[in-house]
Protein backbone atom coordinates (compact mmCIF):
# COMPACT_ATOMS: atom_id res chain seq x y z
CA UNK A 1 0.00 0.00 0.00
CA UNK A 2 1.01 3.63 0.00
CA UNK A 3 1.34 6.28 2.67
CA UNK A 4 0.10 9.38 0.91
CA UNK A 5 -2.23 9.92 -2.02
CA UNK A 6 -3.19 13.27 -3.46
CA UNK A 7 -4.65 14.60 -6.69
CA UNK A 8 -3.77 17.79 -8.47
CA UNK A 9 -4.17 19.60 -11.78
CA UNK A 10 -1.16 20.40 -13.93
CA UNK A 11 -0.49 22.25 -17.16
CA UNK A 12 2.08 20.09 -18.94
CA UNK A 13 3.07 22.84 -21.35
CA UNK A 14 4.63 24.59 -18.35
CA UNK A 15 6.03 21.62 -16.45
CA UNK A 16 8.52 19.57 -18.41
CA UNK A 17 9.24 17.03 -15.67
CA UNK A 18 5.54 16.25 -15.25
CA UNK A 19 5.18 15.89 -19.00
CA UNK A 20 7.86 13.19 -19.02
CA UNK A 21 6.16 11.27 -16.20
CA UNK A 22 2.84 11.42 -18.02
CA UNK A 23 4.38 10.23 -21.27
CA UNK A 24 5.89 7.30 -19.39
CA UNK A 25 2.51 6.41 -17.85
CA UNK A 26 0.75 6.60 -21.19
CA UNK A 27 3.44 4.50 -22.77
CA UNK A 28 2.95 1.80 -20.11
CA UNK A 29 -0.75 1.76 -20.95
CA UNK A 30 -0.04 1.56 -24.69
CA UNK A 31 -1.30 5.09 -25.28
CA UNK A 32 0.22 8.16 -26.81
CA UNK A 33 0.01 11.74 -25.68
CA UNK A 34 -2.58 13.72 -27.61
CA UNK A 35 -0.75 16.92 -28.65
CA UNK A 36 -3.89 18.98 -28.08
CA UNK A 37 -3.98 18.18 -24.40
CA UNK A 38 -2.33 20.48 -21.93
CA UNK A 39 -4.33 20.06 -18.74
CA UNK A 40 -3.96 16.82 -16.81
CA UNK A 41 -5.31 15.65 -13.49
CA UNK A 42 -2.66 13.53 -11.80
CA UNK A 43 -2.56 11.20 -8.81
CA UNK A 44 0.59 11.45 -6.70
CA UNK A 45 1.62 8.69 -4.32
CA UNK A 46 4.67 9.34 -2.15
CA UNK A 47 5.68 12.17 -4.51
CA UNK A 48 5.50 9.92 -7.57
CA UNK A 49 2.96 10.45 -10.36
CA UNK A 50 1.09 7.14 -10.69
CA UNK A 51 -2.01 8.00 -12.74
CA UNK A 52 -3.20 10.70 -15.11
CA UNK A 53 -6.29 11.86 -16.99
CA UNK A 54 -6.18 14.50 -19.69
CA UNK A 55 -9.00 17.00 -20.03
CA UNK A 56 -9.69 19.25 -22.99
CA UNK A 57 -12.76 21.43 -22.41
CA UNK A 58 -15.51 18.77 -22.15
CA UNK A 59 -13.49 15.78 -23.27
CA UNK A 60 -11.56 13.38 -21.07
CA UNK A 61 -8.89 11.22 -22.68
CA UNK A 62 -5.44 9.81 -22.12
CA UNK A 63 -6.44 8.16 -18.85
CA UNK A 64 -3.69 5.86 -17.57
CA UNK A 65 -2.47 4.30 -14.35
CA UNK A 66 0.85 2.75 -13.43
CA UNK A 67 0.32 -1.06 -13.45
CA UNK A 68 2.01 -1.33 -10.03
CA UNK A 69 -0.68 0.84 -8.48
CA UNK A 70 -3.78 -0.77 -9.91
CA UNK A 71 -6.44 -2.22 -7.65
CA UNK A 72 -6.33 0.64 -5.13
CA UNK A 73 -9.25 2.65 -6.43
CA UNK A 74 -6.81 5.37 -7.47
CA UNK A 75 -8.43 5.62 -10.90
CA UNK A 76 -11.86 6.07 -9.36
CA UNK A 77 -10.63 9.00 -7.28
CA UNK A 78 -8.81 10.37 -10.31
CA UNK A 79 -11.97 10.34 -12.40
CA UNK A 80 -14.00 11.88 -9.63
CA UNK A 81 -11.45 14.67 -9.28
CA UNK A 82 -11.46 15.20 -13.04
CA UNK A 83 -15.26 15.37 -13.19
CA UNK A 84 -15.31 17.93 -10.39
CA UNK A 85 -12.55 19.96 -11.99
CA UNK A 86 -14.57 20.08 -15.24
CA UNK A 87 -17.72 21.06 -13.31
CA UNK A 88 -15.88 23.92 -11.64
CA UNK A 89 -14.98 25.14 -15.11
CA UNK A 90 -18.59 25.06 -16.22
CA UNK A 91 -18.46 21.72 -18.07
CA UNK A 92 -21.14 19.32 -16.89
CA UNK A 93 -21.78 17.31 -20.01
CA UNK A 94 -18.56 15.35 -20.45
CA UNK A 95 -17.30 12.97 -23.11
CA UNK A 96 -14.66 10.32 -22.64
CA UNK A 97 -12.59 8.29 -25.05
CA UNK A 98 -11.17 4.96 -24.05
CA UNK A 99 -10.35 1.52 -25.33
CA UNK A 100 -13.34 -0.83 -25.45
CA UNK A 101 -11.76 -3.09 -22.81
CA UNK A 102 -12.00 -0.27 -20.21
CA UNK A 103 -15.67 0.35 -20.84
CA UNK A 104 -16.81 -1.45 -17.73
CA UNK A 105 -14.55 0.56 -15.45
CA UNK A 106 -15.75 3.89 -16.82
CA UNK A 107 -19.31 2.65 -16.69
CA UNK A 108 -18.81 2.47 -12.92
CA UNK A 109 -17.73 6.14 -12.97
CA UNK A 110 -21.05 7.25 -14.40
CA UNK A 111 -20.09 7.21 -18.09
CA UNK A 112 -22.34 5.58 -20.70
CA UNK A 113 -21.20 4.29 -24.09
CA UNK A 114 -22.47 6.10 -27.18
CA UNK A 115 -20.71 4.27 -30.01
CA UNK A 116 -17.79 1.91 -30.38
CA UNK A 117 -15.31 1.18 -33.12
CA UNK A 118 -14.53 -2.46 -32.36
CA UNK A 119 -11.05 -3.09 -30.88
CA UNK A 120 -10.09 0.56 -31.20
CA UNK A 121 -12.12 3.07 -29.29
CA UNK A 122 -15.36 3.75 -27.51
CA UNK A 123 -16.90 7.18 -26.94
CA UNK A 124 -18.80 7.61 -23.69
CA UNK A 125 -20.72 10.47 -22.06
CA UNK A 126 -21.50 11.12 -18.41
CA UNK A 127 -25.25 10.99 -18.75
CA UNK A 128 -27.52 8.09 -19.63
CA UNK A 129 -29.84 10.33 -21.62
CA UNK A 130 -27.54 12.79 -23.44
CA UNK A 131 -27.77 11.53 -26.98
CA UNK A 132 -31.27 10.16 -26.42
CA UNK A 133 -32.57 13.56 -25.40
CA UNK A 134 -30.76 15.28 -28.26
CA UNK A 135 -32.42 12.91 -30.71
CA UNK A 136 -35.83 13.51 -29.12
CA UNK A 137 -35.35 17.24 -29.72
CA UNK A 138 -34.16 16.56 -33.22
CA UNK A 139 -37.11 14.30 -34.06
CA UNK A 140 -39.46 17.25 -33.54
CA UNK A 141 -38.03 18.49 -36.84
CA UNK A 142 -38.94 15.28 -38.62
CA UNK A 143 -40.58 15.75 -42.05
CA UNK A 144 -42.77 13.32 -43.99
CA UNK A 145 -41.47 11.64 -47.13
CA UNK A 146 -39.83 8.51 -48.44
CA UNK A 147 -36.52 9.98 -49.45
CA UNK A 148 -35.02 12.24 -46.81
CA UNK A 149 -31.58 13.58 -47.61
CA UNK A 150 -28.87 15.08 -45.42
CA UNK A 151 -25.74 17.15 -45.83
CA UNK A 152 -23.20 18.06 -43.16
CA UNK A 153 -21.23 21.16 -44.09
CA UNK A 154 -18.83 23.58 -42.51
CA UNK A 155 -19.54 26.22 -45.19
CA UNK A 156 -16.55 28.33 -44.37
CA UNK A 157 -17.93 30.34 -46.19
CA UNK A 158 -20.99 29.17 -48.16
CA UNK A 159 -20.08 28.96 -51.88
CA UNK A 160 -21.84 28.20 -55.14
CA UNK A 161 -20.50 24.68 -54.66
CA UNK A 162 -22.48 24.28 -51.43
CA UNK A 163 -25.49 25.81 -53.11
CA UNK A 164 -25.26 23.40 -56.03
CA UNK A 165 -24.97 20.45 -53.65
CA UNK A 166 -28.02 21.64 -51.67
CA UNK A 167 -30.08 22.34 -54.81
CA UNK A 168 -29.28 18.98 -56.40
CA UNK A 169 -29.95 17.09 -53.19
CA UNK A 170 -33.19 18.95 -52.52
CA UNK A 171 -34.41 18.20 -56.05
CA UNK A 172 -33.80 14.48 -55.52
CA UNK A 173 -35.44 14.24 -52.11
CA UNK A 174 -38.75 14.84 -50.42
CA UNK A 175 -36.93 16.79 -47.72
CA UNK A 176 -33.34 17.79 -47.08
CA UNK A 177 -31.71 18.36 -43.67
CA UNK A 178 -28.54 20.45 -43.66
CA UNK A 179 -26.31 20.44 -40.59
CA UNK A 180 -23.86 23.29 -40.18
CA UNK A 181 -20.80 22.42 -38.10
CA UNK A 182 -21.21 24.26 -34.83
CA UNK A 183 -17.67 25.14 -33.79
CA UNK A 184 -15.89 28.43 -33.77
CA UNK A 185 -12.66 26.94 -35.07
CA UNK A 186 -12.91 28.29 -38.62
CA UNK A 187 -12.18 31.61 -40.29
CA UNK A 188 -15.88 32.53 -40.21
CA UNK A 189 -17.81 32.32 -36.96
CA UNK A 190 -20.53 29.73 -36.57
CA UNK A 191 -23.22 32.43 -36.35
CA UNK A 192 -22.13 33.94 -39.67
CA UNK A 193 -21.73 30.58 -41.43
CA UNK A 194 -25.17 29.50 -40.21
CA UNK A 195 -26.82 32.67 -41.51
CA UNK A 196 -25.06 32.37 -44.88
CA UNK A 197 -26.26 28.78 -45.31
CA UNK A 198 -29.82 29.76 -44.43
CA UNK A 199 -29.72 32.72 -46.85
CA UNK A 200 -28.13 30.59 -49.57
CA UNK A 201 -30.84 27.90 -49.47
CA UNK A 202 -33.83 30.13 -48.67
CA UNK A 203 -35.18 29.64 -52.21
CA UNK A 204 -35.49 25.87 -51.58
CA UNK A 205 -38.79 25.04 -49.95
CA UNK A 206 -37.99 21.53 -48.76
CA UNK A 207 -34.87 22.23 -46.72
CA UNK A 208 -34.22 22.60 -42.96
CA UNK A 209 -30.95 24.04 -41.70
CA UNK A 210 -29.78 22.77 -38.30
CA UNK A 211 -26.91 23.73 -36.06
CA UNK A 212 -24.86 20.61 -35.46
CA UNK A 213 -24.14 19.58 -31.88
CA UNK A 214 -21.37 17.90 -29.98
CA UNK A 215 -22.57 14.76 -31.71
CA UNK A 216 -21.77 15.78 -35.29
CA UNK A 217 -18.19 16.61 -36.29
CA UNK A 218 -17.21 18.47 -33.16
CA UNK A 219 -13.81 19.79 -32.25
CA UNK A 220 -11.32 17.95 -30.08
CA UNK A 221 -13.06 14.61 -30.49
CA UNK A 222 -9.97 13.04 -31.91
CA UNK A 223 -8.86 10.01 -29.98
CA UNK A 224 -5.41 9.96 -31.51
CA UNK A 225 -3.70 9.34 -28.22
CA UNK A 226 -3.64 5.60 -28.22
CA UNK A 227 -3.34 4.78 -31.86
CA UNK A 228 0.09 4.65 -33.32
CA UNK A 229 -0.60 4.72 -37.01
CA UNK A 230 -2.13 7.74 -38.68
CA UNK A 231 -4.45 5.61 -40.78
CA UNK A 232 -5.88 3.94 -37.71
CA UNK A 233 -6.41 7.26 -35.98
CA UNK A 234 -8.46 8.59 -38.83
CA UNK A 235 -10.38 5.39 -39.06
CA UNK A 236 -11.29 5.50 -35.38
CA UNK A 237 -12.24 9.15 -35.26
CA UNK A 238 -14.27 9.12 -38.41
CA UNK A 239 -15.89 5.84 -37.43
CA UNK A 240 -17.13 7.36 -34.17
CA UNK A 241 -18.56 10.39 -35.92
CA UNK A 242 -20.24 8.42 -38.67
CA UNK A 243 -21.62 5.72 -36.39
CA UNK A 244 -23.29 8.40 -34.27
CA UNK A 245 -24.83 9.74 -37.45
CA UNK A 246 -26.02 6.35 -38.60
CA UNK A 247 -27.18 5.01 -35.24
CA UNK A 248 -28.80 8.09 -33.72
CA UNK A 249 -29.14 11.17 -35.93
CA UNK A 250 -30.41 9.53 -39.10
CA UNK A 251 -33.13 7.49 -37.30
CA UNK A 252 -34.28 10.60 -35.39
CA UNK A 253 -35.06 12.39 -38.66
CA UNK A 254 -35.79 9.34 -40.84
CA UNK A 255 -32.82 10.29 -42.97
CA UNK A 256 -32.41 7.83 -45.83
CA UNK A 257 -29.33 9.14 -47.63
CA UNK A 258 -26.40 11.51 -47.29
CA UNK A 259 -24.98 13.78 -49.97
CA UNK A 260 -21.41 14.90 -50.34
CA UNK A 261 -19.31 16.65 -52.97
CA UNK A 262 -16.17 15.08 -54.43
CA UNK A 263 -12.98 16.27 -52.79
CA UNK A 264 -10.15 16.99 -55.20
CA UNK A 265 -7.73 18.79 -52.87
CA UNK A 266 -7.99 18.20 -49.11
CA UNK A 267 -6.58 14.85 -48.02
CA UNK A 268 -8.45 14.82 -44.72
CA UNK A 269 -11.80 15.58 -46.31
CA UNK A 270 -11.17 12.99 -48.98
CA UNK A 271 -10.40 10.39 -46.32
CA UNK A 272 -13.60 11.41 -44.56
CA UNK A 273 -15.55 10.87 -47.77
CA UNK A 274 -14.07 7.40 -48.07
CA UNK A 275 -14.87 6.70 -44.42
CA UNK A 276 -18.47 7.75 -45.07
CA UNK A 277 -18.75 5.22 -47.85
CA UNK A 278 -17.66 2.54 -45.39
CA UNK A 279 -19.33 3.41 -42.08
CA UNK A 280 -22.66 4.49 -43.55
CA UNK A 281 -22.99 1.72 -46.13
CA UNK A 282 -21.36 -1.37 -44.67
CA UNK A 283 -24.03 -3.74 -43.41
CA UNK A 284 -21.76 -5.31 -40.75
CA UNK A 285 -20.58 -2.28 -38.73
CA UNK A 286 -24.00 -1.27 -37.42
CA UNK A 287 -27.36 -2.83 -36.77
CA UNK A 288 -29.06 0.30 -38.12
CA UNK A 289 -30.14 0.53 -41.76
CA UNK A 290 -27.58 1.38 -44.40
CA UNK A 291 -27.53 5.05 -45.43
CA UNK A 292 -26.58 5.30 -49.10
CA UNK A 293 -23.96 7.93 -49.82
CA UNK A 294 -24.53 10.00 -52.93
CA UNK A 295 -21.37 11.63 -54.21
CA UNK A 296 -21.83 14.62 -56.51
CA UNK A 297 -19.11 15.94 -58.77
CA UNK A 298 -18.06 19.44 -57.74
CA UNK A 299 -18.94 22.27 -60.07
CA UNK A 300 -16.11 24.21 -61.61
CA UNK A 301 -15.39 27.83 -62.39
CA UNK A 302 -12.60 28.45 -64.92
CA UNK A 303 -11.56 24.80 -64.61
CA UNK A 304 -11.07 25.13 -60.86
CA UNK A 305 -13.37 23.16 -58.57
CA UNK A 306 -15.19 25.67 -56.39
CA UNK A 307 -14.19 25.30 -52.76
CA UNK A 308 -14.43 27.35 -49.61
CA UNK A 309 -10.68 27.05 -49.07
CA UNK A 310 -10.12 28.73 -52.46
CA UNK A 311 -12.44 31.57 -51.45
CA UNK A 312 -10.49 32.02 -48.22
CA UNK A 313 -7.19 32.06 -50.08
CA UNK A 314 -8.48 34.66 -52.53
CA UNK A 315 -9.79 36.71 -49.65
CA UNK A 316 -6.40 36.58 -47.99
CA UNK A 317 -4.77 37.87 -51.18
CA UNK A 318 -7.52 40.46 -51.65
CA UNK A 319 -8.49 39.09 -55.08
CA UNK A 320 -12.07 40.16 -54.55
CA UNK A 321 -13.20 40.09 -58.18
CA UNK A 322 -12.39 36.42 -58.51
CA UNK A 323 -14.42 35.60 -55.42
CA UNK A 324 -17.60 37.01 -56.89
CA UNK A 325 -17.83 34.17 -59.40
CA UNK A 326 -17.47 31.54 -56.67
CA UNK A 327 -20.11 32.56 -54.16
CA UNK A 328 -23.86 33.21 -54.31
CA UNK A 329 -25.02 36.86 -54.06
CA UNK A 330 -25.96 36.41 -50.37
CA UNK A 331 -22.43 35.41 -49.40
CA UNK A 332 -20.98 38.07 -51.71
CA UNK A 333 -22.93 40.86 -49.96
CA UNK A 334 -21.75 39.59 -46.60
CA UNK A 335 -18.11 39.44 -47.68
CA UNK A 336 -18.35 42.91 -49.21
CA UNK A 337 -19.68 44.38 -45.99
CA UNK A 338 -17.16 42.61 -43.86
CA UNK A 339 -13.93 42.73 -45.82
CA UNK A 340 -14.03 45.11 -48.74
Amino acid sequence: MYSSLEYSVVDISKQQSVLESIERLLHLAGLELDPRLSVFVIAIVDSKIVACAGIDRDIIKCVAIDPDYRGNNINLGLLEYTIKYANEHGQFHLFLYTKPENKIFFRSCGFYPIVEVPDLVVLMENTPIGIKRYCQQLSLEKKPGNKIGSIVMNANPFTKGHQYLAETAAAECDWLHIFVVNEDASMFSFADRFELVKAGVSHLKNVSVHASSSYIISKATFPSYFLKEQAKIDKAYMGIDLLIFRNYIAPALNITCRFVGTEPTSEVTNAYNEAMAYWLQDSQVSSMPVIPLIVLERIKENNFAISASRVRALLENQCYDEIKALVPPTTWTYLQNKYM
Binding site: N73, N87, F92, S108, G110, N126, P128, I129
Partner: peptide, 29 residues
Amino acid sequence: EALAGTLESSDLMVKVSPNSGIEIIVNSE
Protein backbone atom coordinates in the same frame (compact mmCIF):
# COMPACT_ATOMS: atom_id res chain seq x y z
CA GLU B 1 -26.39 21.84 -13.19
CA ALA B 2 -24.91 20.66 -9.93
CA LEU B 3 -23.22 17.63 -8.44
CA ALA B 4 -22.90 16.03 -5.02
CA GLY B 5 -21.28 12.88 -3.69
CA THR B 6 -18.43 10.66 -4.80
CA LEU B 7 -17.83 7.46 -6.75
CA GLU B 8 -16.53 5.62 -3.69
CA SER B 9 -18.03 2.38 -2.55
CA SER B 10 -21.06 2.87 -0.24
CA ASP B 11 -21.56 6.37 -1.60
CA LEU B 12 -23.35 7.77 -4.63
CA MET B 13 -22.96 10.61 -7.08
CA VAL B 14 -26.01 12.77 -7.71
CA LYS B 15 -26.20 14.98 -10.78
CA VAL B 16 -29.05 17.44 -11.16
CA SER B 17 -29.92 19.65 -14.11
CA PRO B 18 -32.82 21.82 -15.29
CA ASN B 19 -35.79 19.98 -16.77
CA SER B 20 -39.51 20.43 -17.16
CA GLY B 21 -41.12 18.14 -14.63
CA ILE B 22 -39.24 15.65 -12.53
CA GLU B 23 -37.24 12.87 -14.11
CA ILE B 24 -35.19 10.44 -12.05
CA ILE B 25 -32.66 8.04 -13.47
CA VAL B 26 -31.15 5.51 -11.10
CA ASN B 27 -28.06 3.54 -11.84
CA SER B 28 -26.88 1.24 -9.16
CA GLU B 29 -24.60 -1.69 -8.60
